[in-house]
Amino acid sequence: MENNIFNIQNEQEFAETALTVFKHQFKNNKVYRSFCDLLYIHPSDVKTIQEIPFLPIQFFKSREVVANLDFVEETFTSSGTTGSVTSKHLVTDINLYKESYLKGFAHFYGNIEAYTVLALLPNYLERKGSSLVYMVDDLIRKSKKIESGFYLDNLNELAKKLIELDKMGRKTLLIGVSFALLDLIEMQNFKLKNTIIMETGGMKGRRKELVREELHTILQDGFGVAEIHSEYGMTELLSQGYSKGNGVFETPPWMKILTRDTEDALTINPSEKNGGINVIDLANYNSCSFIATQDLGKVHKNGTFEIIGRFDNSDIRGCNLMVL
Results as ranks from 00 to 15, higher is better:
Tyr101Glu: 02
Val91Phe: 09
Tyr109Cys: 08
Val136Asn: 10
Asp138Ser: 14
Ala114Gly: 11
Val133Met: 06
Arg127Trp: 11
Met135Glu: 08
Ala119Ile: 06
Tyr101Leu: 00
Pro122Asp: 05
Leu125Cys: 14
Asp138Gln: 11
Asn95His: 11
Tyr134Gly: 04
Asp93Lys: 04
Gly104His: 01
Thr116Asp: 03
Asn95Phe: 12
Ala119Gln: 07
Asn123Ala: 15
Ala114Glu: 14
Tyr101Thr: 00
Tyr134Ser: 07
Thr81Leu: 08
Thr86Ile: 02
Thr92Val: 00
Val85Ile: 13
Asn95Gln: 13
Asp137Cys: 04
Lys128Gln: 14
Val117Gln: 01
Asn123Lys: 13
Tyr97Trp: 13
Asn123Phe: 15
His107Ser: 10
Gly129Val: 05
Ser84Lys: 15
Lys98Gly: 02
Asn123Cys: 15
Met135Phe: 14
Leu121Phe: 12
Lys128Trp: 06
Ala106Tyr: 09
Thr86Pro: 01
Ile94Gly: 07
Asp137Arg: 13
Val85Gly: 07
Leu118Asp: 08
Glu126His: 13
Lys103Asp: 06
Gly110Gln: 05
Val85Asn: 11
Ser87Val: 03
His89Arg: 09
Leu139Ser: 14
Tyr97Cys: 02
Leu125Thr: 14
Glu113His: 04
Tyr124Ala: 14
Phe105Ala: 05
Leu120Arg: 10
Leu118Thr: 08
Glu113Val: 10
Ser131Pro: 11
Gly83Ala: 03
Glu113Gln: 13
Ala106Asp: 07
Val91Asn: 03
Glu99Pro: 02
Gly80His: 01
